[in-house]
Amino acid sequence: MAYWLFKSEPDVWGWDHQLAKGCAGEEWSGVRNYQARNNMRAMKRGDLGFFYHSNIGKEIVGIVEVCRTSAPDSTTDDPRWDCVMIKAVEPLLQPVTLDDCKKQPGLENMALIKNMRLSVQPVTPEEWQIVRRMGGLTT
């Protein structure tokens, strides 16, 4: 299993929107960055990701699961762009802010800190566990 981070502007598509989609999930569409697209192409069903509110809040608020692998993005006719489908799994008990991540030992090389503009990022297993603990999840 691999781990990821999905960034979204909460006033456009936030955690509550994702939760409302339930088990059906939602396409992570509209990504127009080759590196982010390639990250989605590498995803497998069952991979987990953090749901990050960018711009407003700048915090990790929940966990999502990839429920469909990469397929053509339905928001464009351009064949270069794909997207996965994700569904909400659980909220963090307490949001983990970008500032908290920057201060946390073990996260200094996290893509969220090193490559802040990338909308879909890999997360290492060690980073995954650290952020989960910071968010109040222990299992």
Rank of each mutant, 00 (worst) to 15 (best):
M1W: 02
M1T: 11
A2P: 02
L5D: 03
P10W: 04
W13K: 10
W15V: 10
D16N: 12
Q18R: 05
L19G: 09
A20N: 09
A20Q: 09
A20Y: 01
A20L: 07
A24W: 02
E27Y: 13
W28Y: 09
G30N: 06
R32S: 07
R32E: 10
N33E: 05
Y34W: 12
Q35H: 09
Q35C: 02
Q35G: 05
A36D: 05
R37N: 15
N38G: 08
N38D: 15
N38Q: 11
M40S: 08
A42G: 14
K44Q: 15
K44G: 11
K44M: 14
F51G: 03
H53F: 03
S54A: 10
I56M: 11
K58R: 14
K58L: 12
E59H: 04
I60K: 00
I63C: 05
I63G: 02
P72H: 12
D73W: 01
T75M: 14
D77P: 04
D78W: 00
P79D: 13
W81Q: 06
V84M: 03
K87S: 12
A88V: 03
A88M: 09
V89W: 00
V89R: 13
P91N: 13
L93P: 00
L93A: 15
Q94V: 14
T97S: 13
L98T: 10
D99C: 06
K102G: 15
G106F: 01
E108G: 03
N109Q: 14
L112K: 01
L112Y: 00
N115V: 13
N115L: 11
N115K: 11
R117T: 05
L118W: 00
S119N: 06
V120D: 01
V120Q: 02
P122N: 10
T124E: 09
P125H: 07
P125F: 04
E127N: 04
Q129K: 13
